[in-house]
Design a protein around this nucleic acid. Sequence first.
DNA 1: CAAGAGGCCTGTTAGC
DNA 2: TGCTAACAGGCCTCTT
Length: 277
Amino acid sequence: MPELPEVEAVKRGLDQSIVGKRVTAIEVMWSKIIRHDDIEAFKQSLIGQVCQRIDRRGKFLLIYFDTHVLLSHLRMEGKYFLCDKEQPVHKHTHVILELDKKEELRYHDVRKFGRMELLEIGQEFQHPSFTKLGPEPTPATFSPHVIKEYLSGRTTAIKNVLLDQRMVAGIGNIYADEILFDAYVHPEMSAAEITDEEIQQLYYSIISIMQAAIKAGGSTIRSYTNMFGEAGHYQAYHQVYGKDGESCSRCGTIIEKTKVGGRGTHFCPNCQRKRGA
DNA sequence: CAAGAGGCCTGTTAGC
DNA sequence: TGCTAACAGGCCTCTT
């Protein structure tokens, strides 16, 4: 399930494989992937344009063409593949961009959750997806102060805060669990209870885990691979996600699984305690 | 405004 | 074995 590190790996794959190439035709097999009512108008706006560069913001990909930018969110299982035209089309391929009449960029998405939207360049950061998006989890853009401000007045579980893209962009369910374990914070702790020391630790854990995961090419759980069919490697470093029933690497206690905000949540009941427990 | 629930999807797994 | 139900979950929309 692509979170920021996996989307960054996809971005790098697109950098290498489609920049400089011209869209010569478009095929849309599942129209709900495209967030426009008029699919024909979408196609006509994009056909003929050359890909100039790829960017990423949070979990969004921004694929820049001459006059427009294609905003792409992979959600759970979206993937891009570059193929020769002759290769058979997989049943879960929903959008095809033909490139220079010989190759195809194919968007593949088993669960059809992913979305694409075409915007005029310059409009992208006025888009509702971006106006409320929090900073990237890097030292240049993010700080403990951002966390402190965001926690103020909130009572929801700290895990829900990490998943809230308005505070910081790019964290999904896997990395939220890994960050909370790294920071010794219980996922159900109320935002209002978090101390300044815990804010510092959460900040450090967010930065370091996201950077380490990017460096490892993301995590491969079930199905994620990058454009070249390569798996990420960060799952080898997972301490709690998918480890329920196994021993904690720090203290040996059995990792538990529960639900927080409707999402599967893994934690060490000894290392991550609720206050007073 | 905050926060929770429902919907979108289908392959995999659990349970009878 | 073969069926159904639960589960996986990011984001948007609606409701409270």
